[in-house]
Every structure is written in structure tokens, then in C-alpha cells.
């Protein structure tokens, strides 16, 4: 993210005059991602939201990014740890604790 972009977020009046279409692809993606993550100041957010309504390519990128993020969030399903792995971990922990006790006893 460039200094220019950061400064523009601190100063929404500057962003207002900034032509989002003039941003490079990388900066625009950064801006749109920050917008989706709710990391833009309120004024900057309103400007991006307004831009979204008037710029079809940005609106499309945002819509598909929202869809992708929504699908990713839905991957947060219960873990379903295999019972064997669970048992094996607990047995290994007991064994490690026993080993440590023996070492401490011998010291």
C-alpha cells in the first residue's frame, strides 16, 4: 500500500477528489479489500460505496469478492478430529509427562 493511498484514507476530502479509476490494479484491489474488511474510515467507506454504484467493473469485483469471502467463511465448520488422532495425542501426552517425571527423578 503506498504512502499516497494511506494519506488519502486519513484525509477523505483528498480521497473524494481522487479518481479511483486512476488507481493501479493493485492499489484498487487493496482499497476494495479494505472496504470489504470494514477497515476504511467512515468517510472513505462512503466514497467507495458511491463509486461502487457508479462503476460496473468495481461493482463486479466487489460482488464476486464478497461471494468468495462468504464461501470461505462457510469453510469454518466443526473440526471433526478423527477419534484415533485424539486418542493418540492424549496417550502421547501421558507418555511425555511420564518420561519427564522419570528424568526429573533421576536428576
Amino acid at each position: 500500500m503506498t504512502k499516497n493511498y494511506r494519506e488519502s484514507l486519513r484525509s477523505p476530502a483528498h480521497l473524494k477528489s481522487m479518481d479511483l479509476k486512476g488507481l493501479s490494479c493493485r492499489k484498487r484491489v487493496a482499497l476494495l479489500c479494505d472496504y470489504l474488511d470494514g477497515e476504511l474510515p467512515a468517510a472513505a467507506r462512503r466514497i467507495v460505496a458511491a463509486h461502487r454504484r457508479s462503476c460496473l467493473p468495481c461493482a463486479r469485483v466487489l460482488a464476486s469478492l464478497e461471494c468468495t469471502l462468504s464461501a470461505l467463511r462457510e469453510l469454518r465448520t466443526p473440526a471433526r478430529i478423527p477419534a484415533a488422532a485424539r486418542r493418540s495425542l492424549r496417550a502421547a501426552l501421558r507418555s511425555a509427562a511420564g518420561k519427564r517425571r522419570r528424568q526429573e527423578k533421576n536428576q
Partner: peptide
């Protein structure tokens, strides 16, 4: 890599994003 993402004012490859 940085690639021109479908956006340069309609000059890039057209997106076929359906209505969401």
C-alpha cells in the same frame, strides 16, 4: 504476479459475474 485484473475501464477481459 500483479496482473491487470479485468478492470481497466472495460478494456480488460470482461467479467462474467452473474447477478449476486
Amino acid at each position: 504476479l500483479d496482473r491487470p485484473h479485468d478492470h481497466e475501464d472495460g478494456e480488460g477481459p470482461a467479467l462474467s459475474v452473474p447477478d449476486r
